[in-house]
Amino acid sequence: MLGGGGFFGIVLTPRNVAVLEAALEFGAAVSLDFGVASGSVSVMAGIYFRLEADTGECRITGYFRARGEVDVLGIVSASIELCLDLSYESAGGTVYGRARITISVHIGFWSQSVTLECEKRFAGSGPPPQPLAAGSPEPVRPPTFAEMMAPYPDPVTGLRRDPVDEYCTAFASVR
C-alpha cells in the first residue's frame, strides 16, 4: 500500500565528478478486484535533482502524480492520470510549472486517449528578453507574482476583487 523508491547516479571522469543525479519518490497505491470489475488508485510525489559540475548547471524538480483506473470484464476500461511538476533550472534562472492530464477509454477493440498539457513560466525567472530586430513584435512578458496577486476590477461587475482575500476566505469557517 505504501511505497517509494529512488536512485542516485554519478558520472566520474579521470579529472572530476561530471554529473550528480538523484531522485526520491514516495506514495501509496490501492487496488480492488470484485471479479467482474477491478480498479486501482495510486498517488506518488517526489523530488529530482541533477548537478552538472563542468557547466555548474543545476536542476531541481518536485512532482506529484495521481492515477486511477477501472476495468469491467476486460471489455470496458478507463483511466485518468494527473501529473504536476515544478522545476528550477539554474542555467537560465528559470522556474516553471507543468501540468498534464490524460484520460483514456477502451471499449472492446476501440480506444481513445486525450491529453491536455500546460506550462507556466514565472516572471523574474531567467535573464531579461533580448532586444528584437526593428519591426519585430515585443516579447510577451509574463506577469510578476505581485502583479498576479494585486487587486483588480471584476470584468463583469466592475467591483474590486482581491485574490489574496478570496483565497483566505475560501478556507475560513463561517459560524
Rank of each mutant, 00 (worst) to 15 (best):
D85W: 04
I75C: 04
L73Y: 03
C58I: 11
L73N: 08
F64G: 08
V70C: 09
V72R: 03
G62I: 01
I75L: 12
S87Q: 11
I80P: 01
V70M: 09
A66K: 01
F64T: 03
T61F: 05
G62D: 10
R59V: 13
E89Y: 10
A66I: 04
D85T: 00
D71E: 12
S79M: 05
I60F: 00
R65P: 01
G68I: 02
L73M: 10
R65H: 08
L86Q: 13
R59K: 14
L86G: 09
I80R: 07
R59G: 12
C83K: 12
V72N: 00
V76E: 02
G62T: 09
Y63R: 09
L73T: 01
Y88R: 13
I60Y: 02
C58P: 00
C83P: 06
R67M: 10
A66G: 11
E69T: 03
S79G: 15
G68H: 04
E69M: 08
E69C: 03
E57Q: 14
G74A: 02
R59Q: 15
L73R: 07
F64V: 05
G56C: 05
L84Q: 11
L86V: 06
A78G: 15
E57N: 15
A78E: 02
V70Q: 02
L84E: 15
V72Q: 02
E81V: 05
A78S: 10
C83I: 14
D71L: 05
E69I: 00
S87A: 14
E69S: 13
I80T: 10
R65K: 13
S77N: 11
R67S: 14
G74K: 01
Y88D: 09
R59P: 08
E81G: 10
T61R: 15
L86F: 07
C58H: 12
S87G: 14
L84M: 08
G56A: 06
V70I: 12
S77C: 07
A78V: 05
C58G: 10
G56T: 06
V72W: 06
F64N: 07
C83H: 14
E89Q: 13
A66L: 07
S79Y: 03
S87D: 10
I80K: 00
S79F: 02
Y88I: 02
L86Y: 09
E89D: 15
G62N: 10
V72A: 13
A78F: 00
L86C: 06
V72T: 03
L86K: 07
V76Q: 01
I60G: 06
R65L: 09
I80W: 06
S77P: 09
S79L: 05
R67E: 15
